[in-house]
């Protein structure tokens, strides 16, 4: 074995460090994040102060937890348009069960997890069973959940806002886990930032170092080929949808606990943000390629841009333009990398 690995093949040496870096899916996002950080730091000194950093890391963290899960699903070759509205469902279940039915808060959180995981399993099952594009299946789930969130909330509590979660027993312990702050260098940061790092590390480990991760890349890369070599394509797909749901549960619970209340229309329209963050992070829309770290950095870019524009004193309408431009750049560079990676050698 030693002889094999020690043999310095002169053709291998040609692959430079630079090209190896170029093949990393998250490279573009890292460069983008550095440039955006420098850009807004230059425009406003507050941007890179401890308070400023805490401020833009907060939105980045919740978007990041979702983007990492959505990236895993995208690598597996699917979309989940119901990801945003599931956040709302998760938060509403926690809110209504504790405030209206006076279920102990941790029990409500557990019920919320079970229900949202079931939604994910439903999405995944329909996708593998029908073979229809996940885009259309989850669009249907998205619409149905949107209706259910509003309809059921009104039916049960006669209003569209669940309030008063803070007064329920057990709130403090739940808040400590999901929605507390920690102090670093004299600055308070949201604990979701730590959770975001943990989710990213876990997702990276799963993707790169487990069989399930290998199957995720394979399922997204070529479903038929994967099936032919014995990859459990169907169960992998269903589990990926459930991972997105688990992330939605986490973020939904966090938001309900942080605010002490939940709007029945919470989460609508955020699903695209997660997909954009994953794509900026290097995920291919066609599946089979991408990284969790990339998606986390994509979310960071989101957080920095949304807050940076405020610090720079610009009209916040520019945010959308920036985002669109970044998405376009990301898609173009991803496409270039994909072509480099998948081009057949001649001869």
């Amino acid at each position: 074995m030693g002889a094999v690995s020690a043999t310095a093949d002169e053709r291998v040496a040609k692959v430079s460090v630079f090209r190896r870096l170029l093949m990393k899916p998250e490279l573009g996002a890292v460069i983008g994040a550095i440039l955006i950080f420098l850009f807004f730091s230059f425009l406003s000194p507050v941007f890179h102060s401890a308070a400023g950093i805490a401020n833009w890391l907060d939105p980045a963290s919740t978007i990041g937890i979702m983007a990492v899960a959505v990236a895993m699903l995208m690598i597996g070759g699917h979309f989940d348009l119901s990801a945003g509205v599931q956040i709302g469902s998760a938060g509403l279940i926690v809110g209504i069960l504790t405030t209206h039915f006076h279920l102990f808060i941790w029990a409500s959180i557990a019920v919320s997890l079970v229900v949202v995981l079931a939604i994910g399993a439903f999405n995944g099952y329909l996708v593998v069973r029908t073979g229809l594009p996940s885009f259309i299946i989850t669009l249907a789930t998205f619409l149905m959940l949107q209706g259910l969130n509003l309809g059921l909330t009104k039916l049960i509590i006669n209003t569209v806002q669940v309030g008063g979660i803070r007064e329920e027993p057990g709130y403090d312990s739940a808040k400590a886990v999901f929605a507390s702050q920690f102090t670093l260098f004299g600055q308070e940061f949201q604990i979701t930032i730590l959770w975001w790092i943990l989710w990213t590390a876990l997702a990276t480990w799963i993707l790169m170092h487990t069989r399930f991760g290998n199957w995720t890349f394979a399922t997204g890369g070529d479903r038929n080929a994967s099936r032919n070599v014995g990859v459990p394509v169907k169960s992998t797909t269903i589990k990926l949808f459930m991972i997105v749901s688990a992330a939605a549960w986490f973020v939904g619970t966090t938001e309900a606990l942080r605010l002490g209340s939940m709007q029945a229309n919470a989460g609508f329209g955020r699903e695209l943000i997660f997909i954009v963050a994953a794509v900026i992070g290097g995920c291919l829309l066609t599946g089979g390629y991408g990284s969790a770290i990339g998606a986390a950095i994509g979310a960071l870019i989101f957080g920095m841009t949304s807050q940076g524009i405020v610090y720079a004193g610009w009209d916040s309408d520019w945010f959308k333009f920036f985002l669109g431009a970044m998405l376009l750049l990301a898609v173009l560079s991803n496409e270039y990398v994909r072509r480099r990676a998948a081009t057949q050698k001649k001869g």
Partner: peptide, 15 residues
Amino acid sequence: AVVPLMSVWRNFFLG
């Protein structure tokens, strides 16, 4: 039954 975007060794053991 190979996945083009995956490395040779990952394909070799796929499944």
